[in-house]
């Protein structure tokens, strides 16, 4: 129920925002760029209200430790553009794999093997072979 309400509220805000912003778009001789977003915004608002009034029971289980792990991995991904720019694609990806392994409490050996494979994949296949700058 909680997730349904949260998601209904988020889509209600997004639908409302799309409706409001589409009024600022320029108009041609007939309807223009505002037509489609405003129709979608309106429909989204309608369905969000329906869901908000009739939420279904939650099925998923989470735990508080999981939220902390999720927050940490989100911080990593939020920093990933900077990491890719400064450390390179292969190293950033290897760090990503290592952080997920660490948060999932994988043994150190597995963490190192995973990170090494990812680094090799990133460096030799994507950067060297496919020519991705990084």
């Amino acid at each position: 129920m909680l997730w349904d309400r949260i998601l209904a509220l988020v889509s209600l805000i997004l639908g409302g925002l799309s409706l409001a912003l589409s009024t600022t778009f320029p108009r041609g001789q007939g309807p223009g760029p505002e037509l489609f977003p405003s129709i979608l915004g309106m429909t989204l608002v309608m369905f969000s209200v329906i869901l908000l009034l009739n939420p279904s029971p939650d099925r998923h289980e989470e735990n508080s430790k999981g939220w902390l792990s999720l927050a940490l991995v989100l911080v990593f991904f939020a920093l990933s553009p900077t990491l890719v720019t400064h450390l390179g694609l292969a190293v950033a990806a290897a760090l990503g794999a290592a952080s997920v392994s660490l948060l999932l409490k994988e043994p150190l050996a597995r963490l190192l093997v995973t990170s090494l494979i990812v680094w090799l994949l990133g460096q030799y296949i994507f950067v060297r072979w496919l020519g991705i700058p990084g």
Partner: peptide, 11 residues
Amino acid sequence: KGMLLSFIAAI
């Protein structure tokens, strides 16, 4: 599965 998820994140 932990190893698999780490690969998925990196890929």
